[in-house]
């Protein structure tokens, strides 16, 4: 099932949270919306799931205009929220039963699917425990089991990595990729994590509610010219000024980490590093590193800010 968002716009007073967003998502694709807080990702998620009404724009499903409020459309969606939307007082199984009933699954259909979901996500042993005793990773898996009960054709996830450690995140995405292939599901997700965005087939990069780039992770990474040198220093502004004046480089100061980092794109980064170390020999640099560009670097290249910084 393909999905097209055309000119989707949502304002909150004078602020435009999503501005004329147009993207096309192909059937079976994992499509991500990447951007920092305030970029318009969660508003897009709410517009797609019918939690918010758009001020303008149309949603097309297989070429047909649809309303996100239409129950038939919502029946084809599976929605994963940023924080698991489970009832902690109910057991895992009861949460699944509740989810199945909300999507109108008859008990005879729901029962085997619940068993199957619990087994698939390795929760059978804990199915009779209240969810408030589950770990973050288990809750995320239970939520995924719940939203898959009605066999959605499109899975929409808002920051699914929230609260997950790296191991749980990897496991979650591995299961998701397998399911996408088996069930030919289209997957949409919002994220501000470059590591998570890397699991997507294609990405829409959002900033200030606008689409600023769209492509595969590889295509986006190619926008960065060469490798990336990262420099941590106590006075990064001074280092940046020296680099610009003396070495004719264009470092970007990224303040979404502590200490702030300088990022330098360089086609032959390995040759540049010795020169940098020689230029600042008296301990003014805390660390110097080199790596292939990440999707976070792509965002810095496009906006001059890191993904950890609020949208302008």
């Amino acid at each position: 099932m393909s999905l097209r968002l055309e000119g989707l716009t949502r304002r909150f007073g004078a602020r435009v949270a999503v501005d004329q967003l147009t993207v096309e998502i192909k059937r079976g694709e994992i499509f991500g919306f990447l951007g920092p807080n305030g970029a318009g990702k969660s508003t897009t998620f709410q517009l797609l799931t019918g939690l918010l009404a758009p001020d303008a724009g149309t949603l097309y499903l297989d070429g047909q205009a649809v309303s996100a409020l239409d129950a038939r459309f919502r029946a084809r969606l599976g929605v994963v929220f940023q924080h698991p939307s489970l009832d902690g007082k109910l057991t895992g199984r009861e949460n699944l039963e509740l989810g199945a009933a909300l999507y109108g699954l008859p008990r005879t259909v729901a029962r085997p699917r619940i068993q199957e979901g619990l087994a698939l996500f390795e929760l059978t042993d804990r199915a009779h425990e209240p969810v408030e005793r589950y770990s973050g990773g288990m809750r995320r898996r239970l939520e995924l089991a719940r939203v898959l009960l009605h066999r959605p054709e499109i899975l929409i996830m808002d920051e699914p990595s929230a609260g997950l450690d790296q191991a749980s995140l990897r496991r979650f995405w591995q299961q998701l990729i397998t399911l996408r292939t088996e069930r030919e599901m289209t997957v949409l997700c919002t994220t501000h994590q470059p590591e998570e965005a890397a699991y997507c087939d294609r990405l829409a990069v959002l900033d200030g509610g606008r689409l600023i780039a769209c492509g595969t992770p590889e295509e986006l990474r190619k926008r960065v010219g060469g490798d990336v040198i990262t420099i941590e220093a106590e006075r990064p502004e001074e280092i940046a000024a020296t680099l610009r004046a003396e070495l004719h480089l264009d470092p970007q100061l990224v303040t979404d980490s502590d200490p702030p980092r300088l990022l330098i794109e360089a086609p032959r980064a390995h040759e540049l590093i010795p020169r940098l170390v020689e230029r600042f020999p008296s301990g003014r640099l805390l660390s110097v590193g080199m790596r292939p560009p990440s999707l976070g670097d792509v965002f810095v290249k496009l906006t001059g800010r890191g993904l950890g910084q609020e949208a302008a």
Binding site: G50, R74, F81, L102, Y103
Partner: peptide, 14 residues
């Protein structure tokens, strides 16, 4: 606040 209501609202339940 806990997110449960949103899960109910996105379901095809009236």
């Amino acid at each position: 606040q806990g997110g449960f209501l949103q899960a109910v609202l996105v379901a095809p339940t009236s």
